[in-house]
Amino acid sequence: MRASFIFKGLALSALTATALFGASHFGLDSALAEAGKPTDGALYLQEAATPTATELRWLHDVVMIIITAIVALVTGLMAFIFIRFNKKANPVPSRTSHNTLLEVVWTAAPVAIVLTLIAIATQPLYNQDVIPETEMTVKVVGNQWNWTYVYPDHGDFDFTSSLLPEEDAKAQGRPYLLAADEAMVVPAKTKIRVLVTASDVLHSFAMPSFAVKIDAVPGRINETWFVVDEPGTYYGQCSEICGREHAFMPIEIKVVPQNEFVAWVQTRNPEYAAAPATQQDASLTPAATGGN
């Protein structure tokens, strides 16, 4: 077993070296991804901003440990075999071609792993996919090549969000290809339902740090949700090929405190009078007030 141990050691040190190289290349901080946007040289998921993303990260961590163990097992076995059973070490091959017990074991072990995976992956799926009672709705329409955001609970106003041009992004110190000229704005600590559709071809509304990705399909209204506690700016990108400028229709979501959100809505739709927060559930006060 000494040989496989050495090999595992080598593999581990190679992985560590890669990680350290990435880290030293960009300063240690950047090896850890920050919330809301990608980080150069980062080796892992973006930091989670929603409870579902936190759960996704936990699930991915667990699965990562399992698959690393599987790869290490196979690598170790192979290293041992090559050292113990090469032509020099073992000039006369055995003729064994059956071992029922062994075959049962390597069928049963993957079955056990698969059952474990199913057991741990099911609840996160339902938590993520089954939409809870939400407090407000934003409608998202994918177009070639921008996004239209509609606020049906706040007087049904809408606006279009396009790529922030490179010069403007540079001037404003914002990330080019991630920043939009007009962000979608939502209140923090509020369960938000997102209705997604498209006007021309398929698009996909994606926000990695929220664990949100849902296709925008013409003729269909898809539904997802999120709730973000930390105010901040979060970035995503269109994730279904949609033609020439597929790479140039970013998604920017600004999460702001409730009072700032109300102020923002009023700049967008002066006729909208702020309703008490408790009455903002779309099912209770359809169309809120004013607007139309």
């Binding site: 990435g22 946007k37 150069d40 040289g41 892992y44 990330p175 290809l177 991630l178 790479a247």
Partner: peptide
């Protein structure tokens, strides 16, 4: 793998500088 975990979409002719290294 790292680019994907960090969120880089497929079929992109250009990408944010945040994805440069890999």
């Amino acid at each position: 793998h790292f680019l994907g975990l960090n969120g880089m979409p497929r079929r992109y002719v250009d990408y944010p500088v945040e994805f440069t290294f890999f």
